[in-house]
């Protein structure tokens, strides 16, 4: 077993708004090994982004980590002072954000923005930092980086800006890269390029990656491990194989069923998950998915289920996995799932 780079234990993050406490993340645990790529999947409001901001300790007022531990390279960073975090952010843990169009400061050149992080963490001279910035741009596949380095963000296309973001994030060779929906705002061809880029970079730099997305299709062939989140909780966790071929949670099945496929014929409709996510100011007592679950039982709304271990790496939080639960015939969505092997 290789070393653990990140371990999140029972993390709870809340936003204290005037309407009440929004419990965005309600006790999640997972761990990530060195060199591993983990996907966090879930729909909007399931707590994916809040989880990543918690790990970066970049939550803005009124958000706060309520309890739990985040071990990064064996050290608990929950109680680290902001000063210590400044040396970790951008250096050991870096982040790529969702919208490349708005994630770069419009009034500084791409080069300045890459150099800033290099100078900050590696203490290189301006000249050396510029050379490194050019190398980084070349690495992420920007053509003629010597000229492009002095361009402003508005002179870059969306895909190029996301590459530039990747250059910023990777320029200090972080141990952990968190990519929060890095392809959501891009069109499909560019999505594919960015995912390929991340895969290449992972192999070149041996960075551990957390890839956050609402699209199972995106994580399919890059992630070794997938965490499915819903209502601020981890619903199911397993290897990509487990999630795509042996899903145990009805929510995971729902996600699989809603992936568009070309090879299923024109007549097949996508099956959406009906309903809306739960209100996290007053989160449901039982399983948060109860209201939308086609297989919900009485107990589901009364008590939250415990995790059932299916095997070493695979676990799910569902009453249907309890040994006393009835044997239901379920449409797991596997047949529709992505077959990429």
């Amino acid at each position: 077993m290789s070393e653990k780079i990140l371990e999140v234990k029972n993390l709870k993050t809340s936003f204290y708004t005037h309407l009440g406490e929004v419990q965005a993340v309600r006790g999640i645990s997972f761990s990530l090994n060195k060199g591993e790529v983990m996907g966090i999947v879930g729909e909007s409001g399931s707590g994916k982004s809040v989880t990543s901001l918690s790990i970066m300790k970049l939550l803005q007022y009124p958000g706060e980590i309520k309890s739990g531990d985040i071990f990064f390279k064996g050290e608990d960073i929950v109680n680290k002072k902001n000063k210590e975090m400044l040396n970790i952010r951008g250096n050991e843990i870096a982040m790529i954000f969702q919208d490349p169009m708005t994630s770069l400061n419009p009034v500084y050149t791409i080069g300045d923005q890459i150099m800033e992080v290099i100078i900050r963490h590696q203490g290189l001279s301006k000249k050396k930092a510029k050379e490194k910035a050019i190398d980084m741009l070349r690495l992420v596949g920007i053509p003629s980086p010597e000229e492009r380095v002095s361009n402003y963000p508005y002179e870059f296309s969306g895909g190029m800006r996301q590459r530039a973001m990747a250059a910023i994030a990777l320029s200090c060779e972080p141990d952990l890269l968190i990519a929060d929906e890095p392809t959501t705002a891009l069109d499909v061809t560019i999505q594919d390029q960015i995912l390929k880029l991340m895969k290449d970079l992972k192999e070149k730099l041996d960075t551990s990656i957390i890839l956050i997305t609402h699209d199972l299709g995106v994580v399919a062939d890059i992630c070794t491990k997938i965490v499915v989140m819903y209502g601020g909780l981890v619903m199911e966790e397993g290897t990509s194989k487990d999630i795509f071929y042996n899903p145990k949670h009805p929510y995971t099945m729902g996600l699989l069923k809603s992936i568009p496929r070309l090879d299923l014929g024109e007549k097949k409709r996508l099956i959406p998950i009906t309903g809306t996510p739960p209100d996290l100011i007053k989160p449901p007592k039982g399983c948060p998915f109860t209201a939308r679950c086609p297989y919900a039982m009485k107990i589901c709304s009364l008590h939250a289920p415990k995790y059932t271990k299916i095997d070493e790496n695979h676990k799910a939080m569902c009453w249907l996995l309890h040994k006393q639960s009835p044997n239901m015939k379920m449409d797991t969505g596997v047949k529709r799932g992505i077959v990429n092997e």
């Binding site: 954000f97 994630s103 770069l104 419009p106 900050r120």
Partner: peptide, 22 residues
């Protein structure tokens, strides 16, 4: 509240630079 300010913070840039430079 802009995304690019979050990016700068994620780079580990000290707050005074976030405010005055960016």
């Amino acid at each position: 509240g802009q995304d690019y300010i979050r990016t700068v913070r994620a780079k580990g840039i000290p707050e005074y630079k976030v405010i005055f430079k960016h």
